[in-house]
Design a protein around this nucleic acid. Structure first.
Length: 890
DNA sequence: ATGTGCTGCAA
DNA sequence: TATTGCAGCACAT
């Protein structure tokens, strides 16, 4: 006969264990979840391992129990549950309800008693009971069929006890366990027991007398005098303690066994709750366990198309679709010469997979596709639409009517994610697993070219992708609306996608000859420096290796190590500067560093990435990378081309406008401080901008309390550092380090700044406060960033969170503004039928390549779009300049 | 091969 | 122990 199995969990005990065993875990909006998470992990494990027919979780309720009535001091002095744990009780119960896990609760009875009663009841019915708890008291319930699972070492492991196991470990029967506790007492429940009797003595006594009752009757048999006296003096305590420690197995509470039967949970509720508490990894586990892993969905017909005629006919089938999810794969990664290998187009009814690998006449196919992708009445959606725009551009196909990009959507929902892959989104939102690109092509060395991938596999990949985009649109759009991000999404980010695609396609022309000349010039310089350095060191070594350099400087040459890194001596520029007068080798090394940096990163780096077809550099502008809303640039990074030192700045001469064109370069003047002035409404700061003063000079005048015309250059640069600090979320330590002054002095600077700009101070305080309350901060366009760091118990991490709370609204709003400006510029250039093109963005700077005869109109247009991107209380200002090279246009 | 640390460039 | 990034190199695995 197969016995039914019931699992009874001591809820309070287990959640306590989980809470103390796991590090704090906080959701983005600041809710503690570690105890719930631990509990649910355990529950899932129990499901997997024991697969019970019945399951229940017992909880204590607040009401006093008979033990309190009998013994007023019962559980007195027990520490209150910490609020971080208390706030997790109600949500856990809510989740258990959604999972359809029965909660065993009754006023006036402790969880232990309910567990005892239920397990005895099940025992009588011939069932197997498993009691899960962190509390050894439950061992008294152990029997042949009632097993006690006790958490040990965190919560991941369980020790199983039946009656034999109890006897083996403690040398007493489960029932005698009560007697032990009666003698020993229990500090946590404030049960007195017999003072001076601990575990060892109690076990000895019970082994000898078998119970407290027997012991009392025969105290004369106790050999040790002192012990006998103690016990005789505390007979009442022992008896009462035993009664308190006894788990009641017959409480008068009716529980229908049927209500504990394990059933499917409420799938929708589970998903919603798990998302709310960010238990993403648990969704799948419980979804499977509730037998609802796959959600029913519309069956779509997939069409694998490999012949030219059918491909052309797709146009006629698709032309009535309202919405198409587009995805394409190209053979190489080579802007403008890339051949499309396959295309998927998914609609509500069908998914079309076009495999072009055996087709010679791509143009005819593309002509048909063009009609779909450029149709006014078909909405185009996708994941990473910028890529699609770029793929189709060489075929002269311009995607019209782009209405949704799931990647951009998710970025606005949470900008802190490390990936925005469609696979991850699908797992999260749809609870389904699909192939990602790595699975399709393999990784690293053995990555397959698309042309060598199995057709069926590509088809599956492409169809899953298209389907996912269609299904993801709704939940992501809903979130966008809920977070009030529609304006940012539809008016800024989505149009920006096309702008960035255009910038990438345009690229920027470089003077290859000049780069090659620089390569030789820098190379020669490096050779000379290397020789000098070897001579001065008396040894050949790899100067690029901080480890070897450290050994030479601080051991062989015995220079004083100023600073250490995790792995050894620090050899950075800041350290070397301090040693500059101690040894001739130091300035050589600094110069070597400077030149090698320029050669490897900029000269060689740029040369290696010039597109051989266009002879231009086509950087990628990434829209979903930064946490603040800025754009990032890669392959190459065109946002960190040197400018501060002349030698590096020369590199800007290699970026040249094409024949007959010039660069128009415009940068926002002090955009971040203007944003700060706007947000904080600080009269002093606003006044400075109103009068269009030099902001650092004005700040210096305020901090050092001198008239503007008496501000020295030292004062100004100090003030400049303070302004930077203010934008970054200031700390005295940071400013001190930056200015190389004492922390106390830095603190003085900050205090006098905040005194003069009192509303800035108010802003800083209130931004942090609000972030703590809400769990996130917002920019002017409602872009949000969550700040889990603010709830960290680690001071450094918490302080970091506070600085983010101060900085992100400033940096992020500035990012919002320039993005708006970019969209405006792009649309204005287009509307005016200008040949000029936006080609670069460097955070607060836009660069247009314009024909000579358009310079005047571009100048006006650019300045106008930038300065009127948004209305600020401190009017935006853009400074423009022109040049044949980037160097000259600054 | 892949990952991590150090270093340094920009706004 | 100041914000946001990207990249090259050395070195460990």
């Amino acid at each position: 006969m197969i016995k039914d199995r019931i699992v009874i969990i001591d809820g309070n005990s287990l959640i306590n264990r989980a809470f103390y065993a796991l590090p704090p875990l906080v959701t983005k909006d600041g809710k503690y979840t570690n105890a719930m998470y631990g509990f649910l992990t355990m529950l899932s494990k129990i499901y997997d391992e024991y697969d019970p027919e019945y399951i229940g979780v017992a909880f204590d309720l607040k009401a006093p129990t008979f033990r309190h009535k009998e013994y007023g001091d019962y559980k007195l002095g027990r520490k209150k549950m910490p609020p971080e744990l208390a706030e997790q009780m109600a949500p856990l119960k809510e989740i258990l309800d959604a999972l359809n896990v029965y909660r065993i609760e009754a006023e006036g009875f402790e969880a232990d008693d309910l567990i005892g009663t239920l397990s005895k009841y099940c025992e009588k019915k011939g069932m197997e009971s498993l009691i899960v708890t962190g509390d050894k008291d439950a061992l008294q319930l152990a029997s042949k069929t009632t097993k006690i699972l006790i958490t040990k070492k965190g919560i991941s492991n369980l020790a199983t006890y039946d009656d034999d196991a109890v006897f083996q470990e403690y040398e007493v029967t489960p029932l005698q366990f009560i007697d032990l506790k009666g003698l020993m007492g229990d500090k946590s429940d404030n049960i007195p027991g017999v003072p001076g009797v601990g575990e060892k003595t109690a076990i000895k006594l019970i082994k000898q007398f078998s119970s407290i009752e027997q012991l009392i009757q025969n105290t004369n048999e106790i050999v040790a005098d002192k012990l006998r006296e103690k016990i005789e003096a505390h007979i009442d305590d022992a008896v009462m303690s035993k009664r308190l420690a006894t788990i009641i197995t017959n409480v008068p509470v009716e529980i229908e066994l049927e209500s504990l039967r394990k059933t499917e949970g409420n799938y929708d509720q589970i998903v919603e709750l798990f998302k709310r508490y960010e238990f993403n990894s648990l969704i799948n586990r419980f979804a499977i366990q509730t037998n609802k892993a796959t959600v029913e969905k519309r069956e779509k017909i997939t069409h694998r198309i490999t012949d030219l005629d059918s491909m052309i006919k797709v146009k006629d089938i698709i032309k009535d679709a309202k919405k198409v999810a587009i995805k394409s794969i190209t053979e190489e990664n080579n802007m403008l010469t890339d051949k499309i290998i396959c295309i998927s187009m998914a609609t509500d009814k069908d998914i079309f997979f076009l495999d072009l690998r055996a087709i010679d006449d791509h143009n005819s196919v593309m002509e048909a596709i063009k009609d779909i992708l450029e149709a006014d009445n078909i909405e185009i959606i996708g994941h990473d639409i910028k890529k699609e725009i770029i793929h189709f551009a060489p075929y002269n196909i311009n995607l019209k009517n782009i209405v949704f990009d799931t990647m951009i959507g998710e970025y606005l929902i949470d900008s802190a994610k490390s990936t925005y892959g469609i696979k991850e989104l699908t797992t999260f939102y749809l609870n389904e697993t699909i192939m990602d690109e790595e699975e399709l092509r393999g990784k690293g060395k053995q990555q397959l070219k698309p042309s060598n991938i199995d057709s069926l596999k590509i088809e599956e990949y492409m169809c899953q992708h298209g389907n996912a985009v269609l299904e993801l649109t709704k939940p992501i759009m809903e979130k966008i609306i809920n977070l009030d991000l529609q304006k940012l999404y539809y008016d800024v980010e989505l149009p920006l996608t096309e702008v960035l695609a255009s910038m990438e396609i345009e690229g920027i022309k470089v003077d290859r000859k000049m780069l090659e000349a620089l390569k030789i010039e820098f190379g020669d310089k490096i050779d000379l420096l290397t020789k000098d350095i070897y001579a001065l060191a008396g040894v050949d070594f790899n100067i690029n290796s901080p480890k070897q350099l450290g050994e030479v400087l601080f051991e062989k040459l015995e220079l004083p190590p100023i600073k250490k890194t995790k792995t050894g001596y620090s050899t950075n520029a800041e350290v070397l500067e301090k040693l500059i007068d101690r040894h001739e080798i130091i300035p050589k090394i600094l110069e070597y560093r400077q030149v090698t940096k320029l050669k490897s990163t900029y000269v060689d780096g740029l040369l290696s990435i010039i597109n051989p077809i266009t002879e231009r550099i086509h950087s990628s502008f990434n829209q979903t990378v930064t946490t603040t809303g800025r754009i990032s640039s890669t392959e190459p990074n065109l946002q960190n081309i040197p400018v501060k030192l002349e030698m590096g700045r020369r590199l800007r001469k290699v970026f040249v406008a094409k024949e007959g064109y010039q660069f128009v370069d415009a940068d926002y003047s002090q955009i971040e401080l203007r944003v700060l002035a706007h947000i904080s409404e600080d009269v002093n700061l606003l006044d400075a901008f109103e009068k269009d003063q030099d902001i650092h000079t004005r700040t210096a005048s305020e901090i050092f309390d001198v008239p503007m015309d008496e501000v020295t250059s030292e004062m100004r640069s100090g003030a400049k550092a303070v302004n930077f600090g203010i934008v970054y979320g200031i700390s005295d330590f940071g400013l001190g380090g930056n200015l190389n002054i004492s922390r106390a002095k830095a603190k003085q600077y900050i205090e006098s700044y905040l005194e003069k700009y009192s509303n800035v101070k108010k802003y800083m305080t209130s931004s942090v406060e609000e972030a703590k309350k809400k769990g996130y901060v917002l920019t002017l366009m409602n872009r949000r960033r969550y700040l889990p760091e603010l709830h960290s118990s680690n001071f450094n991490i918490r302080s970091f969170g506070e600085r983010i709370a101060m900085n992100t609204p400033i940096q992020g709003s500035a990012a919002d503004i320039i993005k708006i400006a970019m969209v405006k510029v792009y649309e204005s250039l287009k509307k005016n039928n200008l040949k000029a093109k936006l080609i670069l963005q460097v955070h607060d700077e836009l660069i247009i390549e314009a024909p000579g005869d358009e310079l005047d109109i571009v100048e006006k247009l650019l300045k106008d779009c930038m300065e009127n991107a948004i209305e600020l209380k401190a009017q935006l200002k853009a400074d423009l300049s022109f040049g044949d090279t980037w160097y000259d246009a600054k």
